[in-house]
Write a protein that binds this DNA or RNA. Structure first.
Length: 467
RNA sequence: GGCGGCGUGGCCAAGUGGCUAAGGCGAAGGUCUGCAAAACCUUUAUUCAUCGGUUCGAAUCCGAUCGCCGCCUCCA
């Protein structure tokens, strides 16, 4: 049984999809006006882990992530650079796909774009206007918040409190200051589409409702996104979708905590951010994913390069065991001691089942690593089956679920460089047999200066090339 | 002003009513090794922001206080 914390009910609930084993999942994707930052990456990676774990549990996940390709920021950027909006959108959509691929994020089933769903969006607004949930004021269409009785149920706010808040912009056209735009009347030099209310473009919230329902149906299982989307974005999505089409838009709402920099939310508007591609130049996707997995998805994560470096040290321990496993020659002997690894997988799954508790899941992996190393230390001969099982455990947990790649699937090309290193290892081996340790050490030291680390073990001498 | 979250060892971080408070990084000592590296072992929180309360029993529940952060405006 899996538990998921549902923002809507503020409780952990048993996960029961509408049409098991099918699961529908929608994640709010990027507005493609710039490179995304490492805080955005956290949401993308964590939703990827949620999806991967569901697939691990044999659910058939239909995963949709939208790209917002028309909005104020995009238009602003296009004007600044004096290029068409589509060109900006295309550039950053390409960059987005490049970056998420580097981060090891599995491809979504569909990446719908707002501009490709204008008819669906217009139809949805039309429906809301016809039923009085929305009203048209001179080409601007607003959602009538007072009409929807569930307004505020996701964010725990009530309309009166919100109205007394001082930060709502004054707009004479709105009946209620909280009413939000569904359709924005075209201004000069802006992309615009035909509609029953005249030329214009959609408001931000409506696209997600339209695309979610279009691709996944009127009730979906999981909708995920950052904490900052709870209000108003997700609240408004509920209002739109449930007013028109369904009495339950989303079964489970999942929200990710912020990534902070110096205890402050990382955001474009504050200017305190690193882009994901910037970080990826110096750090691997593995270390980023490991870092994210070390903290529960719902809480804040105070990001720093030092933290990333300590994650890299933690990963080293995993890599070392992986290399050790790959170098073992399995024994065919009978009566070998065997290693039971079931309990580690059980612990891993229990942690993940409990609202995707990745830090605890990692702890179960480290317990395995310690105990399996101990097992290898104690036993000179190891059965093939134990090696296969160990590899299987690491692949399932770290790679399949957390997306940390360990065993390279491509054939290891033996380059001249490798041959050369092997030659030096041979020479050094002879020196060691002659007890010529100064030569042996010199070879090791010189190689180390070149970034090639030798390590002697009972399985022979191995080497690692660092970049 | 309204609503919400957080405060656990040097750092990061699980745990949210009951065995000795997971795990990672770091540090110290040790085993192994020709020496290293790796691995393993031991040590590193009588204590969970502070003060009260409930309870047979609390880091976990309640109240107060202090500190930090977020949402209420575009934002993952």
């Amino acid at each position: 049984m899996m538990l998921i914390y549902n923002t809507l009910t503020k409780k952990k609930e048993e996960f029961i999809p509408k049409n098991s084993p099918n699961v529908t999942m929608y994640v709010c994707g990027p507005t493609i006006y710039d490179y995304f930052h490492i805080g955005n990456a956290r949401s993308f990676v964590m939703s990827d882990i949620v999806r991967r774990y569901l697939e691990y549990k044999n659910f058939d996940v239909k995963f949709v992530m939208n790209l917002t390709d028309v909005d104020d920021k995009l238009i602003k950027k296009a004007n600044e650079e004096n290029v068409p909006v589509e060109q900006v959108a295309e550039k950053y959509a390409d960059a987005f796909f490049e970056d998420i691929e580097k981060l090891g994020i599995k491809k979504a089933t569909v990446y719908p774009k707002a501009t490709e769903h204008m008819q669906d969006i217009v139809d949805l607004i039309k429906n809301l206007v016809d039923t009085d949930y929305a009203y048209n004021v001179d080409g601007n269409v607003f959602y009538n918040v007072n009409k929807f009785k569930g307004y505020g149920k996701l964010s725990g706010k009530n309309i009166d409190d919100l109205e007394s808040g001082a930060r709502i912009e004054i707009n004479e056209e709105k009946k209620n200051p909280l009413d939000f735009s569904l359709w924005k009347k075209a201004k000069p030099n802006e992309p615009a589409w035909e509609s029953p209310w005249g030329k214009g473009r959609p408001g931000w919230h409506i696209e997600c409702s339209a695309m979610s329902m279009k691709h996944l149906g009127e009730t979906i299982d999981i909708h995920a996104g950052g904490n900052d989307l709870i209000f108003p974005h997700h609240e408004n999505e509920i209002a739109q979708s449930e007013a028109c089409c369904t009495n339950e838009f989303v079964k489970y709402w999942i929200h990710f905590g912020f990534l902070n920099l110096n205890q402050e939310k990382m955001s474009k508007s504050l200017g305190n951010f690193f882009t994901a591609r910037e970080i990826l130049k110096e750090h691997s996707a593995n270390s980023i994913r490991y870092l994210f997995s070390q903290t529960h998805y719902s809480g804040p994560l105070n990001f720093s390069k030092e933290l990333l470096e300590s994650s890299e040290k933690g990963l080293e321990k995993i890599y070392n065991l992986v290399q050790r496993i790959e170098n073992i020659k399995p024994s065919m002997a009978d009566n070998l001691n065997t290693f039971e690894n079931e309990r580690y997988l059980f612990a891993f799954e229990s942690a993940m089942d409990d609202n995707f508790n990745t830090p605890q899941a990692l702890a179960s992996i480290y317990d395995f690593i310690r105990d399996f190393n101990k097992f290898l230390n104690k036993n000179d001969q190891v059965a093939k089956n134990d090696i296969i099982k160990a590899k299987d455990f690491l692949t399932k947990t770290l790679t399949d679920v957390l997306g940390i790649v360990l065993f390279s699937t491509e054939e290891k090309g033996e380059s001249k460089e490798d041959d050369l290193i092997k030659l030096l290892i041979e020479i050094r081996q002879k020196a060691k047999l002659d007890k010529n340790y100064s030569l042996a050490d010199e070879i090791r030291n010189k190689l180390s200066e070149l970034g090639i680390t030798l390590a002697d073990s009972k399985e022979g001498t191995t080497y690692k090339i660092s970049k």
